[in-house]
Design a binder for these strands. Structure first.
Length: 599
DNA sequence: AGATAAAATCTCGCACGTTT
DNA sequence: AAACGTGCGAGATTTTATCT
């Protein structure tokens, strides 16, 4: 027996103290004196203080503030190796995120908890209950045999997991847990991943299976609703900041809104995806609201297709984040990095005769664009095998042609023809008419404050963007990816212009000579060939487009009476003399044009 | 040798079919 | 309809393998 005379309580003293508490009638008037008699090494004040400490600890547990008040991290670490009494781990205790503090407190306090079990008498319980209502119940509940059953992963957690997987790759569970599934530990993430890959591996072998969260392999879809997006922020709020790219992170919901000053260039630079735009909800609508009446009843049903797990086919995480930002949700949560990246500033080379500007060029501010122009391509290259992409001479069907490269792809659930591949375009462009034919509405558009410089050197603003999944190539050799399109209300013979962003993400090689585009999927080369017929049909359409087709200054309020579809060549053309004194010099104009425009 | 990741195993709850 | 058994899915834990 070695009782200390000082204020410190040894394990033995604690045991004696608590055993005595169990024996004593705490309703009696002199229980404190009796307790002190049992502990000769302690004064009555020490015993009383110790008892108060005990009750306060219980109170802290009850209020979920135990860790905060009692232990810093370093102190906690110290506890692990230098304990007054051993604190057995509570195995398999419930890990509900909402009860995380309860569990933590249970672990830290389990030494007390176990000992308190010894004083599990009615009078003790009543006494503690009087001091701390519910305290005894909680203590006993914590000490109950723990269940190994955890808390099921939510869909949002799983999607965050997929995002993290996309960014950090298989195996980096620590970072995935740190930056994405912030409600789970790395071990839990690893466990989840194990189940995920296991299920995927056996997906083909077993025919009839119960639906599982692991069947979700697509990051994007359900995040398209406000409620689902917000549920992610609920997760974020509960724990750590959600880091976007390098430095940008979601901040707690309680923070005041940071409106539209977000530069998502960091996001974009990291990913090669289109950046966020500043949000201007005051922008006029491009197209009137309309219901989705085309295709399936569920416009997002195509999202749920079950594709093989292929990192190449995964929608780019940054696209997803970007979408969130663009939809105006991340604005409240994003904060800029503390230190601005020491990016050298330099002049943006002005391109001539190509479409420049737009989101890919760096966002809504000139500074961002400058930074983008000077930025390095990829900071964290992943070593991977990439087969050579070659075009053989035998593939040339007809060597003498001047056709542009025109292919067709699937956008969302619709086949879209007349897509021009333009390696000189810094954006992917979707013409408004095609956009409308996809049954998309204003809700699918995001305004951005940026300028698009066109072929004629003039510019268009404001702009709208939308993110859509495209499928290029033919099944089963197709490649699916999320693409940010700039939606422009211009006349064109084409429906879509596929520019550098998507071509680069496709790892595409373009050969106008071979009239083909080849790209990589899963380390295999796929190709999509141009349709010479389409290409040639586009040509006369392009050259006979009315003057009105030149980029207009603004995509502002949509005119009521707009010239009908421009995807077909004008049917009625009239020759109009260029000069009154030279009737031989004429130009063909559309008959439907107002007379003022004909002159 | 220690740290870490991956695989294997354990445990629990639920759904579903069968039996009583 | 209730009881029971079985298989599956999921999460946690333990064991094994690999790396530093």
């Amino acid at each position: 027996m070695s009782f200390s005379k000082n204020g410190d309580w040894t394990f033995l003293e604690n045991n004696t103290f608590e055993n005595a508490l169990a024996e004593l009638n705490l309703d009696g008037p002199d229980w404190l004196e009796q307790l002190t008699e049992i502990l000769p090494s302690k004064t009555i004040d020490q015993v009383r203080d110790h008892y108060i400490d005990l009750v306060m600890d219980i109170d802290l547990i009850e209020s979920g503030r135990y860790m905060e008040h009692q232990y810093t991290d370093s102190e906690k670490n110290k506890m692990d190796g230098d304990l007054e009494f051993p604190l057995p781990a509570v195995h398999g205790s419930g890990t509900s995120s909402s009860e995380a503090m309860d569990q933590t407190a249970g672990v830290v306090f389990s030494g007390y908890v176990e000992n308190m079990m010894a004083l599990d008498t009615d009078s003790e319980k009543q006494h503690l209950e009087r001091l701390v209502p519910g305290g005894t119940r909680r203590l006993l509940r914590v000490a109950e045999p723990a269940s190994r059953k955890g808390v099921n992963w939510t869909e949002e957690e799983h999607r965050l997991f997929l995002m993290g997987l996309n960014v950090y790759g298989r195996g980096d569970w620590k970072n995935i847990a740190k930056y994405f599934v912030t409600t789970r530990t790395p071990t839990q993430v690893a466990s989840h991943a194990q189940k995920y890959f296991n299920r995927m591996e056996h997906a083909r072998k077993v025919g009839k299976r119960r639906p599982s969260i692991h069947d979700i392999r697509n990051i994007t879809a359900p995040l398209r609703t406000e409620a689902q997006i917000m549920s992610i922020y609920d997760l974020v709020d509960r724990k750590k900041p959600f880091v976007v790219g390098h430095g940008y992170q979601l901040r707690p919901r309680a923070s005041p809104p940071l409106l539209s000053s977000i530069s998502a260039a960091a996001v974009e630079r990291e990913a090669g995806a289109a950046p966020a735009s500043s949000l201007d909800t005051g922008q006029p609508s491009l197209i009137p609201e309309q219901s989705n009446t085309m295709g399936t009843t569920d416009p997002t049903s195509w999202f749920y297709q079950d594709y093989d797990h292929d990192m190449e086919d995964y929608h780019d995480l940054r696209n997803q984040i970007e979408e969130l930002i663009r939809r105006g949700h991340l604005g409240r949560y994003l904060k800029e990095p503390k230190e601005a990246s020491p990016r050298p500033r330099g002049l943006v080379e002005k391109q001539i005769d190509v479409i420049t500007g737009g989101p890919v060029a760096g966002g809504s501010s000139s500074a961002v664009r400058k930074a983008y122009a000077c930025s390095m391509v990829e900071k964290r290259p992943r070593p991977e095998f990439e087969p050579e992409i070659t075009f053989g001479t035998e593939e040339v069907e007809r060597s003498h042609h001047d056709d542009t490269l025109v292919i067709s792809i699937q956008i969302a659930n619709a086949r879209v023809k007349r897509l021009m591949v333009d390696i000189m375009s810094s954006i992917d462009m979707l013409y408004l008419d095609a956009f409308k034919k996809l049954s998309l509405t204003n809700e699918d558009l995001t305004p951005m404050a940026s300028t698009l410089t066109g072929f004629m050197g003039d510019s268009i603003s404001p702009l709208r963007t939308t993110i859509l999944p495209i499928t290029i190539g033919e099944e089963p050799r197709a490649k699916i990816m999320m693409t940010t399109f700039m939606v422009v209300d211009l006349q064109s013979a084409y429906n879509v212009i596929l520019g550098c962003p998507t071509l680069n993400k496709l790892k595409a090689m373009v050969s106008t000579y071979h009239r083909a585009i080849k790209f990589l999927t899963s380390a295999k080369v796929r190709e999509s060939r141009s349709d010479p017929g389409e290409s040639r049909q586009c040509y006369p359409t392009t050259v006979t487009l009315p003057e009105k087709s030149c980029p207009r200054q603004a995509l502002g309020p949509r005119e009521e009476a707009r010239t009908p579809t421009h995807l077909e060549p004008p049917k009625q053309l009239a020759k109009v003399p260029l000069k009154r004194d030279r009737p031989d010099m004429t130009v063909k104009v559309e008959m439907t044009l107002p007379e003022a425009n004909q002159l």
